[in-house]
Amino acid sequence: MKRSRSKKRRKVQVPVASMGDIAFLLIIFFLLLSEFAKDKDLPIALPESEQVEKTEAVVVARVAIDSSGDIYFDGDRVDNAKDVEWGIRALLTRTVSDNQRHVQFKCDARLPRETFEPVLKAIAEAGGIIEAVGEKP
């Protein structure tokens, strides 16, 4: 009598009721944390160098100058280098370490000095560390 009882298997039910909630929470988490590349479609021919390395630093802002010389700050077009400086200054007001000062800089390889140098100086003046984007030849 006892033996026959012990042979009976208990049905174990895995609680799946909250799986949907967990999945949606994960989706919301990824949606909030993901970052869309705003300057992906800009016409920029990147310069080449053997010394470029994969960027490990987390950048606080993205500055780009396209082939026509238009300046973009975090994907939005700005009028001049001064706007870039004030934008970065505003972002860096609460920074405490050097790791939080990296600013990505993309510029078309054919542009003359008078177009890109004021922007480079503006980033430096605002306290940013320049991460100049390039490609390996």
Binding site: I27, Q104, L120, I129, E131, A132, V133
Partner: peptide
């Protein structure tokens, strides 16, 4: 989303210009 996401890691040169 996991399959469609491309993690772009750009290559760059770090320059800390003195101010």
């Amino acid at each position: 989303f996991l399959v469609a996401t491309t993690l772009v890691k750009v290559q760059s040169v770090t320059a800390d210009l003195p101010t």
